[in-house]
Amino acid sequence: MSTVIVLTPVIIASWPTILAAVTGAATALGLVVKETVKQDIKQQQAVEQSVEIELSNSEVLAQNLASGKEVVVAKGDIEIKVGRDERGRCTVCAKGKGHTKAELKQIAEEFSRKMTQCFVYNRVATELKSKGFQMVNEEVMDDQSIRINVRRWVD
């Protein structure tokens, strides 16, 4: 053994990269990508509860994201919108009829965790491949973590 490091993810990416993570998270959690829309808060119905959370350590690179653009994923009566706030942070908003704010917060947090995991996986896998690492093993563990083993030969 030589070193073990623990890293806290920071999400700084363009909108297409964020979108790939959103799609991955949606697929993993059984949601479908409904639409990529411009934000229109006025259309939200008053009877629906909604909870918005902000991903800490996140930044969507502004040059690739038109103001107010967002993606919507859905499952049943739950809708999750992922977008970018005015400060450039990535936001996840869950809404749905018949759900309490606490339930929606839990749903939004679960989605943001899965999205972060997908983002990190995509980024790490791409970088490892570009540096000539060979995949030895990849598996999803019982605790839903993803374990990747790679190797590389050097002169």
Binding site: M1, V6, T8, Q117, V120, V124, M141, V150, R152, V154
Partner: peptide, 21 residues
């Protein structure tokens, strides 16, 4: 030639543990 191995574990919260061997 030397073999370098990296074991990467991405937790369900996105935290990453890297073991460089």
């Amino acid at each position: 030639m030397a073999q370098h191995e990296v074991e990467i574990t991405i937790s369900k919260t996105g935290e990453v543990k890297v073991h460089i061997k």
